[in-house]
Amino acid sequence: MGNNFKVTGTSLTIYLPAEVDHHNAEALKNDADRLIQNQNIRCIIFDFAQTNFMDSSGIGMIMGRYKNLRFMGGNVIAIRVNERIRRILTMSGIYKVIDIYEDIPQQSKLL
């Protein structure tokens, strides 16, 4: 871990790897959950800038974090999503519960 995460206040930015599959998602899940617990995280930003592949394991990973955070009144967003990833997010229906932004929304209270 290390470079893949950034904590700002109670916001956690997760810089996703080039490929988010079952293998990578499992590792991310464990590291992210430790941070979420220890740092009292209320908002997760999934940054897809480096990502060009994701399958349903990635959807499961995002859904899982979303459920945990919603339970505590938190928020989850996705940023810098390319066409392919947008299609996967749309097909899975997950776009209905997490907002997709071009970049970190400047005017928001997220950061």
Partner: peptide
């Protein structure tokens, strides 16, 4: 419980 989305076959079909 393992946070599987249940979309594997749907994605294959799509």
């Amino acid at each position: 419980d393992c946070e599987r989305a249940g979309m594997g076959f749907s994605f294959m079909e799509a």
